[in-house]
Amino acid sequence: MPPSAGVHPDWETAFGAMVRQGRTFTPDPEAQRRYAEVAAVFRDLPGFTDPMFCRIADGLG
């Protein structure tokens, strides 16, 4: 089956029919810094929660 699944003759036509450019957003450097801090906390969570979830999965052994 072609990439356009028969609805459009090719990718370029399909893309042109379905995609519209909207507003442009400029990243906020302060928000980026704060999100990076939060992401670091979430990155560390499995190290704390995985052992607990493994115990639960093993029947609270």
Rank of each mutant, 00 (worst) to 15 (best):
G22H: 09
A39R: 12
D44I: 01
V38E: 02
A5V: 06
M18W: 11
P27S: 08
M52V: 15
D44F: 04
P46L: 01
D28N: 12
P27A: 10
V19T: 02
D28P: 00
M52F: 15
F53E: 13
R33E: 14
D50L: 14
G22A: 07
V41I: 14
L60A: 12
P27Q: 06
P51I: 05
L45P: 01
M52I: 14
P51R: 14
M1P: 03
Q21C: 06
G61L: 15
C54A: 14
R33L: 03
R55P: 01
P51Q: 14
R43A: 14
Q32M: 08
A17H: 06
G59D: 00
T24I: 07
P2V: 00
D50T: 15
Y35N: 01
R43M: 05
S4N: 05
D44Y: 02
P51L: 08
D10S: 12
P27H: 02
A40D: 11
H8S: 08
C54K: 15
L60P: 00
F42L: 14
G59S: 01
A31M: 06
P29D: 06
Q21M: 07
A57W: 04
V19D: 01
Q21H: 10
I56M: 12
P29F: 01
Q32Y: 02
P29R: 08
A31R: 11
E12M: 12
V38Q: 03
Q32T: 13
E30D: 10
Y35L: 09
Q21V: 07
D28M: 02
G47H: 10
V38F: 05
P9M: 04
I56R: 00
P29K: 09
T49S: 14
T26L: 06
D28S: 06
G6I: 01
A31Q: 12
M1F: 06
F25A: 03
F48G: 15
I56F: 05
D58W: 03
L45H: 02
Y35H: 03
V38T: 05
G16N: 01
H8D: 11
P3W: 06
Y35I: 00
A36T: 04
A39G: 09
V38L: 09
D10Y: 11
D10A: 11
A39Q: 15
A31Y: 05
C54G: 10
A57N: 13
F48Y: 15
V41D: 11
P2C: 02
F42V: 12
M18P: 00
M52W: 15
A14D: 05
T49M: 13
P51W: 07
S4C: 07
A57E: 14
P29C: 04
M52L: 14
M18F: 05
